[in-house]
């Protein structure tokens, strides 16, 4: 039997907002450890992996591993009807009837909404995701997630074709990370310096560089990744010319959301 409860719908609402525009379906793996979610976009450019440990839930009972594919658009619609302080219950019955039930209960007026979701096929997930060796990454940038989101928005408004097919070049050089894009009649560069942690200890921008790196990414995807900002105050971007870049948001003490994407290369 699977039975989970969260006393505030916000966490799950934010998770869905952070993934549902880019990924149409996801695989949800429930085990004793917690919930592991994975989704790959249809063009196999981006992968998202989420971990919410059992401790993230107010009640967590899972006595048998259960893996289910779910349609994220339908789930996002249902969750938009939920208030932030609704109590969510997630249940799957013993007979594994290929459906999962999400219940939203308003603590104020006692109204209960029940959604049953049928399992669907997924785009080839779940996948084995190795921990890539730290040493393989040329640079690592940590910054406030709101700042990263703002940068993506600024670049989108300048990019030559709006969000579509605009390329951003992220380059790290000593204590600076630059975001560069080309518009119709010019270019735009946003420079972020490493901040002194004594000034703003809560929102540092930290840059760890082994060697200079300059990589081209699709802005549309980066923009979607930046929606992880509702889940964490900080984002860590790991950059390598040989490995998928990782955009990671740690979720308090209870897990993370990681987006993977390879850079674009000259043919």
């Amino acid at each position: 039997i699977l039975e989970l409860r969260l006393v505030q719908a916000t966490l799950f609402k934010n998770v869905l907002e952070a993934i549902s525009d880019l990924f149409s379906k996801a695989n949800f793996d429930f085990s004793g450890t917690g919930l592991e979610l994975q989704a790959m976009d249809t063009s196999h450019v981006a992968l998202v992996a989420l971990l919410l440990r059992a401790e993230a839930f107010n009640h967590y009972l899972c006595d048998r591993d259960l893996s289910m594919g779910l349609n994220l658009a339908d789930m996002a619609k249902a969750f938009r009807c939920a208030n932030n302080d609704d109590i969510i219950t997630i249940k799957a019955e013993e007979d594994w009837s290929d459906t999962v039930t999400f219940t939203f209960e308003s603590p104020e007026d006692g109204e209960i909404s029940i959604f049953d979701f049928d399992f669907v096929g997924t785009n080839g997930v779940p996948l084995e995701i190795p921990e890539f060796p730290e040493s393989e990454y040329q640079a690592k940038v940590r910054m406030p997630s709101a700042k990263f989101m703002r940068i993506c928005k600024k670049l989108s408004s300048f990019g030559d074709s709006g969000d579509r097919d605009t390329v951003v070049i992220i380059s790290v050089d000593k204590e600076c990370v630059n975001f560069f894009t080309r518009g119709k009649t010019g270019t735009s560069t946003i420079v972020c310096r490493q901040t002194q942690t004594v000034d703003k200890p809560k929102e540092p921008t930290l840059i760890e560089m082994k060697e200079q790196v300059s990589l081209a990414f699709d802005l549309r995807y980066m923009n979607s990744f930046s929606k992880g900002s509702t889940l964490s105050d900080q984002v860590t971007i790991s950059l390598s010319s040989n490995l998928p870049a990782v955009f990671e948001y740690k979720i308090a003490e209870t897990g993370y959301i990681r987006y993977y994407m390879l850079p674009r290369i000259e043919e």
């Binding site: 790959m40 063009s43 196999h44 450019v45 981006a46 992968l47 080839g124 779940p126 996948l127 084995e128 995701i129 190795p130 097919d165 390329v167 081209a216 699709d218 490995l243 998928p244 993977y260 994407m261 390879l262 850079p263 674009r264 290369i265 000259e266 043919e267």
Partner: peptide, 14 residues
Amino acid sequence: KPKQQVLSRFFSPK
């Protein structure tokens, strides 16, 4: 424009 690489070669099915 530079070509987008796909992730397939880095991840295998569980």
